[in-house]
């Protein structure tokens, strides 16, 4: 418990005077925290939601191209086969695997399971790095099967 006398001669900036006049230790803010893998997994899931929203629009665009007929479809396929298109495709699959694995982690932890440090770290590592591994494998097999080429 810090008292006013702790802070009166404080030169470190560790204390602040609150609006109610009380002296309190300054809360650490974002840049103070060491990055934990659990924190990264949590933030990445929120980013995945954002990226998946954009991805959904792209997939619906592909559905639309099919529904608008062969010419529209050929145009979209020509773009998706270009280096930029393939990069977008790679990003889409990364988001897909990230959604599945990180969503799986979220579901498990929502039941109250795997919240201790070791299993939480393990699940977070799986949901952060697993999608990268799966996406690279997915594209290696796509190239090997001759479904895409550069």
């Amino acid at each position: 418990m810090s008292t006013a006398s702790d802070a009166d001669d404080d030169q470190t900036g560790r204390f602040v005077r609150q609006p109610n006049g009380r002296i309190r230790p300054l809360s650490p803010h974002l840049q103070i925290w060491r990055w934990h893998i659990t924190m990264l997994a949590s933030i990445l899931f929120r980013m995945t939601i954002g990226a998946a929203s954009v991805g959904a629009i792209l997939v619906i665009g592909w559905l639309g191209a099919l529904a608008f007929g062969p010419e529209a479809h050929a145009g979209v396929m020509a773009f998706m086969g270009s280096p930029l298109g393939l990069l977008i495709g790679f990003g889409l699959t990364l988001v897909m695997f990230s959604f599945i694995l990180n969503g799986g982690r979220h579901l498990v932890q929502d039941t109250g399971a795997a919240l201790e440090i070791a299993p939480a770290n393990l699940l977070s590592h799986l949901s952060v790095w697993g999608p990268v591994v799966l996406t690279v494998l997915f594209w290696v097999v796509l190239f090997a099967a001759g479904k895409v080429s550069l």
């Binding site: 959604f99 979220h106 997915f138 895409v148």
Partner: peptide, 29 residues
Amino acid sequence: RVALLLLMPLGVWAAFSAFTLTGADYDTA
């Protein structure tokens, strides 16, 4: 939670479908 639970098997199926449909021409799709 129920929606996310449903999306787990649907997501795996979508991944397989994405693999099937990648590079597919108009007639195949």
